[in-house]
Every structure is written in structure tokens, then in C-alpha cells.
Simulated assay, not measured.
Amino acid sequence: MTELTFRLLVSLTALITVAGIVADELGSGKLPEPLRSVKAQAKALAIASSKKSSIVGTVRISLVAGYFLSLLALALFAPFSPWAYLFFTLAWSALTFSDAPHILPRSFVPLYEASLLLNGAVLALCFLSPLAARFTAT
């Protein structure tokens, strides 16, 4: 894989992740009422916990911003960026898991799954491909 191809894959991962976040929000209106109310309650709890503690809100924002910044660092082949990306990917996943389940309309599930697959592919390439040496070069 060339560096340009890797950078395009990283960019696609960021784009699909943003699209998944937007789809998660927009798709709420297409859910059946019982699922819509469960999702609304979970979202309200997450927002309330962030408002109750500025630390929790700061951590949430930092994790999301750190994830996207680590993607940018990967595209620039910054040293140690794969480790930062791994940390922020796992931390954001834990945050998402602790907040609430993802409740998506069927039409948006492929977008969410594509995001997961691309994140996994980028991680694999960072650690298991010949490109891994590019991140340790000084």
C-alpha cells in the first residue's frame, strides 16, 4: 500500500465516521416510537452527566477531538500516532458503550458498520503492515 492510498483510507475513515455520527442523529426520527424514546432517554442522560460535571463534558469533547486529531496525525505519519489513534479509538468506544446502545434505522447500519471496518483496517495497517515502519522513522 502506498502512502497516498493510506492517506486516502484515513480520510475516508474520518468522513465515514462523521457521516455515521450525523446519520445516528438524523436517523432517530425514522425509528419506531419505543426505540425513539429509549434513545432520547439515553441521550438525555449523557447530556445531563456532561452538564452536571464539567470534567465529564471535557473528557467527552477531548475524546472525540483526540480521535480526529489522531487520524490527522496518522495521515501525516507522525511518530507514535498509531498509539494515540489506538487509545482514542478504544476510549471513544468505551464512552459510546457506557452512554447508550446505538439504535439506528436499518438503512443507516451499513454506514456504521463501514466506520467500524475502516477503523479496524487503519489500525491493522498501522501496526501490521510495512507502513508501520514509517511511524517509527525519525
Rank of each mutant, 00 (worst) to 15 (best):
A73D: 05
S98G: 05
Y112H: 11
A94Y: 10
A42C: 07
L26S: 05
S98W: 01
I47A: 12
D99F: 10
F6V: 08
G57K: 03
L69M: 09
P110F: 06
T89H: 02
Y112T: 05
G57S: 10
F87T: 06
P34C: 07
E113Y: 13
T96I: 07
S54D: 15
Y67V: 01
K30F: 11
R36S: 04
L45D: 15
I55V: 15
L63C: 12
L69I: 01
P32Q: 14
E25T: 15
S81V: 01
S11P: 00
T13P: 00
L8R: 15
G27P: 02
S93G: 14
L9K: 14
R60T: 12
L116Q: 12
R7H: 01
V10Y: 01
K30Q: 12
S107W: 12
T17A: 11
P105K: 03
I103S: 07
L131K: 04
T13K: 06
T58I: 15
P101S: 01
G66Q: 01
R106F: 11
L111S: 11
V56F: 13
A133T: 12
G29T: 06
L31G: 09
S62L: 10
G29S: 13
A133P: 03
V22H: 13
T136F: 11
M1I: 12
A78W: 11
M1R: 02
N119E: 08
S28V: 07
V109C: 06
L9S: 02
L123P: 04
A48T: 00
A78T: 08
L74A: 04
S70E: 07
V10T: 05
S53F: 15
F77G: 02
L76S: 14
A94N: 00
V64P: 05
A19E: 05
G27V: 08
L131Q: 11
E113I: 14
A91S: 02
L35D: 10
L118K: 01
F6M: 08
W92A: 04
T13N: 03
A137I: 13
A19H: 06
Q41V: 15
L128Q: 12
P105T: 12
L9V: 01
T58H: 15
Y67W: 13
S54C: 11
S28I: 08
N119P: 10
V59K: 05
L15V: 07
V109T: 11
F87P: 03
D99N: 11
E25A: 13
L72Q: 10
Y112F: 14
I61Q: 14
L9A: 13
I103N: 03
Q41A: 14
G57V: 00
T2W: 15
F87K: 04
L35I: 09
S70Q: 10
S115Y: 05
L104A: 00
P101L: 12
W92L: 10
P101R: 06
L123T: 02
L118A: 02
P32I: 00
L111Q: 03
F80L: 04
L111K: 04
A121E: 03
K43E: 11
P79T: 07
I61E: 15
T58F: 15
I103A: 08
V64T: 03
